[in-house]
């Protein structure tokens, strides 16, 4: 593995949308090299065959130096994008390549009608947390011992602006004994709160 920083001009980096089976080994090599979790070829195929438009590769002088793999779909009545893998090899880090890759995917998700984008990142991965923080992601939850190595993860979320934001404050002026209607969706509120507490309890 190259440990020294590569010298290059950012304009030399070429970003390419997933173009077919010839890109698959490139993506697999990068991810195998850099990420801890092992994936079989079927995992990659699932993502790149169903959502080729959400996967991008970064090349420098013909060499693949970074990639992003994503999906999108319905999740609890929300159309949601999900960033599955993001890798830039070490010599090319810190120059904004990962930001550019992930930004391209997020743009496509937004144009495709996604309401939000999510992903998980290790709590110790300061670089990734900073990157997603700059893009507007919030840390929505802490997932206790999420990875096989025992490290916690943050669930990061990015919500796109809504055209007609919900108004939760229509039922106001409730006094103690008047008929006060609970806001719709109150059930899910309880579940989510419980979940939040449980996570800490662990």
């Amino acid at each position: 593995m190259e440990l020294t920083k590569a010298e290059f001009d950012l304009s030399e980096i070429e970003y390419v949308s997933y173009g077919g089976e010839h890109h698959l080994p490139l993506i697999m090599d990068l991810v195998d090299q850099e990420l801890s979790e092992p994936y079989s070829i079927f995992t990659y195929r699932y993502f790149v065959y169903l959502w080729p438009q959400l996967s991008f590769l970064a090349f420098h002088n013909g060499k693949c130096v970074g990639t992003v793999v994503c999906k999108m779909g319905d999740h609890r009545h929300t159309f949601r994008g999900y960033i599955a893998m993001l890798v830039v090899i070490k010599p090319y880090r810190g120059r904004g390549i990962a930001s550019e890759l992930v930004t391209r995917s997020i743009k496509v998700m937004m144009e495709s009608g996604c309401e939000e984008v999510t992903l998980e990142a290790e709590v110790t991965n300061k670089g990734a947390l900073a990157l997603y923080g700059r893009l507007g992601f919030i840390r929505a939850k802490r997932l206790f011992r999420y990875y096989l190595n025992g490290v916690d993860a943050f669930r990061l979320k990015l919500m796109f602006p809504r055209m007609d934001p919900p108004n939760y404050h229509e039922s106001t002026n409730a006094t103690y004994f008047t008929d006060h209607e609970m806001t719709p969706g109150a059930d899910s509120v309880t579940n989510e709160l419980e979940f939040h507490a449980d996570m800490h309890g662990n």
Partner: peptide
């Protein structure tokens, strides 16, 4: 602020 949303969404 971020490129995709604002403080409001956070």
């Amino acid at each position: 602020v971020g490129p995709f949303n604002s403080e409001r969404e956070r």
